[in-house]
Amino acid sequence: MSGTPLSLIVEVKARHDEARDIATFELADPHGRPLPAFSAGAHVDVQIKPGLIRQYSLCNHPEERDRYLIGVLRDPTSRGGSVAMHEEIQVGDLIQISAPKNHFPLEHAKRTLLFAGGIGVTPILCMAERLAHTDADFEMHYCTRSAERTAFLERIRQGTFAERVHFHFDDGEPEQKLDLEPLVGTPDPRTQIYICGPKGFIDFVLATCKAHGWASHQLHTEYFAGAVADTSDDGSFEVKIASSGASFTVPVDKTVHQVLAENGIEIMVSCEQGVCGTCLTRVLEGEPDHRDLYLDDDEHAANDQFTPCCSRAKSKVLVLDL
C-alpha cells in the first residue's frame, strides 16, 4: 500500500472493550496539542503496521479537539486489519494516522433519519451527537445481533438524546425488530437519511427507501467493506498512461493499481476495496468495469473516473489521466 498521506503521529491514550468483539481506541497528540478539527461522519486512515492501513470512523463529539475515538470490530474473516488492531495495538503506542477526511458528511435538513447496523454505528453516533448538540430533529435506529454485541449501549442510554434512539436486536422480541415501512413508507422531501453498516443492511434500507420513492440525493451511505465481485468472466486488458503513452497489461490476477505500482507509477490508495475513494483516477478513454461502492450510479454511468484498486475494464484499453 503506497501513497497514503499519514501526516499525524498520535498516541493510544486508552482502550476499552465496548461490547463483544468491539473495542474503542482513544488517540491524542503525544504532546497534548489540539488535533485537526473534524465533522460528523469523518474517518481517519490508521497505519496499524507497515503496509497495513485501514479506515476507521471517528465516533466522539465532533467539537472535541483533544482526542479522536475510533471503534473497531474484531472480524476474523477480514483482511487482517481488525485482528491486528485488537491484538497488537496497546495503550502508549505511537501510531501514524491521516488527517480526518469526510466522504459521509451530515447535511442540514428539517429532519434526519439515522440507520446503523453493527459497527456502522461509529459515524452514525457522531452524527447523533452533533444533531443533539444543535437541537435538530432526528431519530436513530440501531440494529445489532444482540445487546452484548451492541457498542456504546450505555453511552447512548445515558446520553442526552437517549429517547431518540431505538435499538433493534436480532435475538429480541418480534416487535423490537426493525420495521422500515412506518419509518420510510411516505417520502418527505425535508428529510435526509443516513445509513451505515454491513452491505446487506445498507442495501436493504436503500432498496426499501427507493421502492417508496425517496430521491437519491436524500439517501446517504457509507460502506465498510467492498462487494464481492464475480470474477469468472474477467480477462486481461491494457491501461495507457496519457502523459507518457506507456501501456501496461493488467492480467486477471492483478489490479490496475498493482500493475502500475510494479512499473513505478504510484497512485494514492488506502482501503483497496473501492470504499474510500482515495485512489479515484480520471479516465480519458475506454469503459471501466466499476466494482466500487464509492461512486453513485450517475458517476458510474459517466465513465470518466474509476477506482484502480478494484475496478477493471469492459473495453480493451483504458486511457488514464496520469
Rank of each mutant, 00 (worst) to 15 (best):
F104H: 03
L114P: 12
L293E: 14
E181Q: 09
D298A: 08
G264E: 03
P174V: 03
I89V: 11
L52Q: 07
C271H: 05
G71E: 10
V250S: 00
T208L: 04
D17P: 12
R54C: 01
D93R: 06
I97E: 14
G80F: 15
A132F: 06
P288E: 10
R190D: 11
R20S: 12
F306A: 11
N303L: 12
S243T: 10
G3E: 00
V91H: 05
T281C: 07
D297I: 10
H166F: 10
K101D: 05
A242G: 05
G200T: 13
A116F: 09
E129A: 14
R164H: 14
H103S: 09
P308G: 07
D93V: 04
V184F: 10
P5Q: 09
I53P: 09
E87H: 03
Q192A: 08
A302N: 14
H141A: 02
D135C: 06
A162W: 09
H290L: 15
R15D: 13
H43D: 12
A42T: 09
L52G: 05
L320S: 08
E222H: 01
L94S: 04
G172Y: 11
Q55L: 13
L318M: 01
Q192H: 08
G286W: 08
T281P: 02
T208R: 06
D66C: 06
I9Q: 15
N263D: 04
L69F: 01
S243M: 03
G213V: 03
L153Q: 05
R67W: 00
K13H: 13
E285I: 09
T255E: 11
V250C: 02
R164F: 14
F38D: 02
S232D: 01
E154A: 06
F167T: 01
H300A: 08
F248S: 13
V72M: 07
R291A: 05
G185D: 05
E238N: 11
G277M: 00
K101T: 12
R157E: 06
R145D: 01
A132V: 05
S98R: 13
V165I: 12
S232E: 05
S7M: 06
A207I: 02
D253F: 12
N303T: 08
L94F: 04
L52H: 10
E129P: 05
R312A: 15
E139K: 07
F115H: 02
E107Y: 09
C271V: 05
E238G: 02
E262Q: 12
A313T: 10
H166A: 04
L131P: 10
H43Q: 13
D297T: 08
Y56R: 11
T307F: 07
P36C: 15
P187G: 06
Y194F: 14
Y68R: 00
L206F: 00
K177D: 07
E175N: 03
H103R: 11
D93C: 05
E148H: 13
H168V: 00
L114N: 12
A37S: 02
V121S: 09
V275Q: 01
E181V: 08
R155K: 08
C143Q: 06
E163M: 07
D297P: 06
H257C: 06
F169M: 11
R79K: 10
R282A: 03
R145H: 00
A151T: 02
P174W: 07
R54E: 01
K240N: 10
T112L: 09
T77W: 13
K254H: 06
T307R: 06
A40G: 09
F204W: 14
L27A: 00
